[in-house]
């Protein structure tokens, strides 16, 4: 019961801090002080209180977009185990539902973007659906590999199954898998090298350009939903990559929080040392990640 409460509290409260850590890391690399760690929270509170501007071309679809996207991500967050703790909701085959909930979220985000009739948002939506579509096989191959090593179809068992010993036994496969999953993590969350969340030119954006017309509480929901998605997929990645467990529930929670913070720092480092890829190169990197995942599956099958 305590674990479920901690799970829900962490899921609801922690995600914006990840953005704060990433921002701070990037600032440190650039030699700036940077915004405070809690800046994303201030932004969210400010947005929720703000008024809204709606384009005259939009319909109910535009308003439903952020609502359904956030809801689907929230439900997906119920299915993901955090650290060594099983998820509040877990059943046989929940990993498929998990992946498809993000599909639903993507459907609503992109369709809301098209509702504005802006060609910039159309561009962003087209990029989003295409790149996510290319990322999909990687995620599923990775899930097969993990399912096979753990013998289960439930995310909670799969992701809490990896132990340091098991990790070392299947090291090569796990390394490849982690590489593939990290690429997917960056691509799905529109981070550098796929998309630059701080870019200022609409033509080159993916995620940010889709939400240009959202304002006020809706934009708050989108920012929060994006942070939540980073948190959920980051937890998936962290569970595979760093399978540390002490057996003490509370210590494991602390380890999980530290792991997630470290992941945010890692993303910040990647964003500081890399440039954004040209759009034509992105599919190549995504297909590359699929091949990495396929290699890791072959090694597990052997």
């Amino acid at each position: 019961m305590t674990d479920i409460i901690i799970h829900c509290a962490l899921t609801l409260l922690f995600p914006p801090l990840l953005l704060g850590i990433i921002g701070k890391t990037k600032a440190a690399f650039a030699g700036r002080v940077g915004a405070p760690f809690l800046q994303p929270y201030y932004d969210l509170i400010k947005l929720v209180r703000k008024g809204s501007v709606f384009s005259e071309t939009t319909t109910w679809v535009f308003r439903a977009g952020p609502v359904v996207t956030l809801s689907a991500t929230l439900v997906a967050a119920l299915l993901i185990p955090l650290g060594r703790h099983a998820a509040p909701v877990s059943f046989n085959g929940d990993l498929i539902l998990f992946a498809y909930l993000f599909g639903l979220a993507r459907f609503f985000t992109t369709i809301a973007a098209l509702d504005t009739g802006s060609s910039f948002e159309g561009m962003g939506a087209a990029r989003e659906v295409t790149f996510s579509c290319l990322a999909e096989p990687t995620l599923f191959i990775a899930l097969i590999t993990l399912a096979r090593t753990s013998g289960s179809l439930s995310l909670s068992t799969i992701l809490t199954h990896t132990t340091p010993a098991g990790w070392l036994a299947t090291g090569a496969s796990m390394l490849l898998l982690i590489g593939a999953l990290f690429i997917i993590l960056l691509a799905e969350n529109c981070r550098i090298p796929f998309d630059d969340p701080t870019t200022h030119l609409e033509l080159t954006m993916i995620h940010e350009v889709m939400v240009l017309d959202h304002s006020g509480p809706a934009f708050g929901m989108i920012l929060y939903g994006a942070a939540l998605k980073l948190f959920v997929l980051g937890a998936l990645f962290a569970n595979v990559a760093i399978p540390l467990a002490t057996g003490n529930a509370l210590v494991d929670w602390v380890i999980f929080v530290v792991t997630m913070a470290a992941l945010a720092v890692a993303i910040g480092v990647v964003e500081s040392v890399m440039a954004r890829l040209r759009l034509v190169r992105i599919p190549q990197l995504l297909v590359g990640s699929t091949i990495l995942a396929a290699f890791s599956m072959l090694l597990v099958l052997r």
Binding site: Y100, R106, L114, D115, G122, A125, V129, L134, E136, F140
Partner: peptide
């Protein structure tokens, strides 16, 4: 992975269909 790819392509197709026909 084939089913996953097909699912992703279906989202492209029907977001396009619905978005271009009914929205904007």
């Amino acid at each position: 992975p084939v089913l996953a790819l097909v699912g992703g392509m279906a989202v492209i197709t029907f977001v396009k269909l619905y978005g271009i026909v009914f929205l904007g």
